[in-house]
Each structure stands twice: as C-alpha cells, then as structure tokens.
C-alpha cells in the first residue's frame, strides 16, 4: 500500500502518521505493508482526497476539511463534541464511514490526532464585557477558509491569508488577531506578536487515516483486521499524545509571556453556539440528507 500525509515529513502530524505506519509494518510483516511516498511535495493536501478516490494513492493521512467537496459531511469531525471512541461506541463511526465509502470511495481507518481545537490569538489585550465575551468587531483576524464563516458571524473583520504571509501581517498590523491550533503555532513565530490567547477552543482537528475502498476490499481478512485493530489502538494513543504535546506547546508560549483570556458565562455559550451553528449550517447547505442523524451521533 502506498501512502501520503498532508504535512511535510518533519512536522508533528506527519511524524504521528509515520508512527502508525511503523506499528502496522512491524505487526504486518508478510501480511500488509505501508510504503509512505511523502507529503505535500507528492500530492498537494487538497487533492489527496481525490487521489484516494481515484486509486492513485492507497492510504492518506489528511484532514476531512481538505476534501469537503467530496464529502461535505466530513465537517462533522470538526463540529463534533464527542471523542472518537464515543462516536465509535454510539454507531456514529459506522454511519459516517458509510458516507465516506459512498462519496469518496474511502474506507475510514481512524480519526487521529484528535482532541485539540482552534484558538483565537490577539495582539492587543481583549477586554471582557459584561456578557463574558469580547468586542469582536475590534479584531482583524487572519483566517483559513475552514473557519472564516464562523469568525465573520461573530462580527470580526476576516482576512484569509496563507500561513507564509501571516508573520509580516502581524508585524505590520494588517491583522491584529490570528486563528490557528496551539499545536504548531509557535513554529511560525506568530507567538512573538500575539501575546493573548482567547479560550475556549472552537472546532476540532479532523485528521483522518483513510484507505481506498477497492484496495481495502482486496486485502485478506487477516490484513484488514490488523489494520483496523492498529487504527483503533492508535486513534486513542495519538489523541493522548496530541493533547500532551499541545499542552506542552501552550505552556511554552505562556512561559514566553502569552496570557490566556477565557470567555465566561453567556458570552462563552454564545461563542460556542455560533461555532457549532456555522459548521452545521454549512453542512446543511451542501447536503441536508444526513444532517439529522449526524447531529444525533456527533452532538
């Protein structure tokens, strides 16, 4: 089985995937082997879903958000309020897997590196108002397309920029806030400017390990079982590892002078409700047929 991952090899997400591959290859000697061909230099992340569907690539380690055009319901992973194993427990996993099989020709193995979400980071100290929220309209936030709808619904000014341009924008004041995961935030040097982190987190990371359906069906039952078992095991392991690593990086930024501002009370509830609302509204707009059931499993 050939495989690609969505970040460069030295990045944490790719490293995590390589650990999974190593486990599979150790246990799977003579049964099944995964041969990693590389990351974005081989197939750009937003095409990895299509490459899996067409069978060009057998296994991908790619966020569902990168191929929403194939499976709009994939957004449910970032909107989810449950852990991956809770979703496996309540039947949600089988349900969403069925949708991925039908729409992306993909068999889902695991939702890895889960457990952390996105934060808003600001340059100026945000003041909590009576509601326990902050004045969003004072923020010019750098965003990615994934969460721009949500940030706009808060009333903030949103600028979509590639990560490479953000450093300069923060330095020059073109934007005064940024939204990203804690994980990897400081690798861009952004923490030098954004000295405030706004809690709580919104959305969740949605990295999926998926395998081409035809390739999956062609595997021996023994190989299938090995992959599935390793995937479930690694899902949990990477969840914990991701949380620990995020915690470590968050602490490092706090040690570097970053302050955490937590929304409270009604402001906090409104913030989280708006995040959920934005995801579900977009999913409903794109394909309403499975929404009710998805809400039952993931909310």
């Amino acid at each position: 089985l050939n495989a690609v991952h969505f970040t460069p090899a030295q990045n944490g997400y790719a490293q995590s995937f390589l650990k999974f591959v190593q486990k599979v290859n150790e246990k799977g000697k003579g049964v099944v082997q995964i041969n990693v061909r590389g990351g974005p230099e081989v197939v750009p992340p937003i095409q990895q879903g299509a490459a899996l569907k067409s069978g060009l690539i057998d296994v991908i380690d790619t966020p569902a958000g990168q191929f929403l055009e194939l499976v709009p319901e994939g957004e449910v992973f970032s909107a989810s309020t449950k852990t991956p194993w809770e979703v496996r427990e309540n039947g949600g996993w089988d349900f969403i897997s069925g949708i991925f099989e039908k729409k992306a020709n993909a068999h889902l193995l695991a939702h890895v590196d889960a457990g952390s979400g996105f934060n808003i980071f600001t340059i100026d100290e945000p003041k909590l108002n009576d509601e326990g929220s902050i004045d969003w309209s004072s923020l010019k936030i750098r965003s990615s397309p994934l969460y721009r709808d949500f940030l706009e619904s808060l009333g903030a000014t949103v600028i979509v920029q590639a990560p490479g341009d953000v450093y300069t924008s923060l330095e020059r004041g073109v934007v005064n806030a940024n939204a990203y995961t804690v994980f990897g935030y400081s690798s861009f040097g952004w923490d030098k400017f954004t000295k405030y982190r706004v809690d709580p987190q919104f959305f969740k990371t949605d990295v999926l390990v998926s395998i081409n359906k035809a390739k999956w069906d062609a595997l021996s039952p023994e190989a299938q079982k090995l992959l599935a078992d390793t995937a479930v095991e690694y899902e949990r392991e990477s969840y914990d590892a991701n949380l620990a690593e995020s915690e470590k990086q968050a602490q490092a930024m706090i040690d570097g002078g970053q302050k955490v501002i937590s929304l409270t009370g009604a402001g906090r509830d409104k913030f989280l409700a708006a995040a959920t609302q934005a995801s579900w509204a977009r999913m409903t707009k794109r394909d309403p047929s499975n929404i009710e059931q998805l809400k039952k499993f993931f909310q």
Binding site: Q10, P163, S187, G189
Partner: peptide, 8 residues
C-alpha cells in the same frame, strides 16, 4: 518564513 517553520 516557510523555511523557518518547516525547519523549526
């Protein structure tokens, strides 16, 4: 910036 973030 890209080089810095890729190479830590």
């Amino acid at each position: 910036v890209l080089l810095g973030s890729l190479a830590q």
